[in-house]
Every structure is written in C-alpha cells, then in structure tokens.
C-alpha cells in the first residue's frame, strides 16, 4: 500500500475548474455558491493519486499539507 498524504486547496488561487472533483470525487468538492473547491472526507490520497490531482489542477491550487508544520 502506498503512503497517504493530506491535501489542501489554496482558496485564493482556485478557479473552480472542477478537475479535482471530477478525478477524486470523494476527496474534493466544488462549493456551488462560492465556486471554490475544498477538501472533504479524510482529505488524504495515496501519493501517486495525489500527484495526479495536483498536476491536473489548472490553477496550481492543490498542495500537500506538510505534516511538520501542521
């Protein structure tokens, strides 16, 4: 099993492209009113899937939560 990493969305950068929700519907939700994505559920994904969703975000708004700082 690959390691899980926790993800976060930069709400200033998000443009509601909806890619995260499309690829990982259990981890991301675009709010219908604010049109900003946020992390739902455990907010964690295996490293490879985290890398994919980070790469697919058009606004470069998704990143890994650094466990040392939080």
């Amino acid at each position: 099993m690959s390691d899980l990493v926790k993800l976060k969305v930069d709400t200033e950068a998000c443009i509601a492209g909806g890619q995260c929700e499309m690829i990982e519907p259990d981890t991301f939700l675009v709010d219908d009113d604010t049109a900003i994505a946020s992390v739902i559920g455990t907010g964690s994904l295996p490293v490879d899937r985290a890398a994919e969703v980070i790469d697919r975000c058009p606004a470069q708004a998704i990143s890994i939560v650094n466990s040392d700082s939080e």
């Binding site: 950068a13 443009i15 509601a16 909806g18 499309m22 219908d32 049109a35």
Partner: peptide
C-alpha cells in the same frame, strides 16, 4: 483572469 473567471465560475461547476 482569476477575477473574471471567479465571477462566473459558479454557473459552470460540475454540479450546477
């Protein structure tokens, strides 16, 4: 771009 896009993005989210 971010400003304009965010003003209208709501209407085009997957759920809406």
């Amino acid at each position: 771009h971010t400003r304009l896009r965010r003003l209208i993005a709501r209407a085009f989210t997957p759920k809406n």
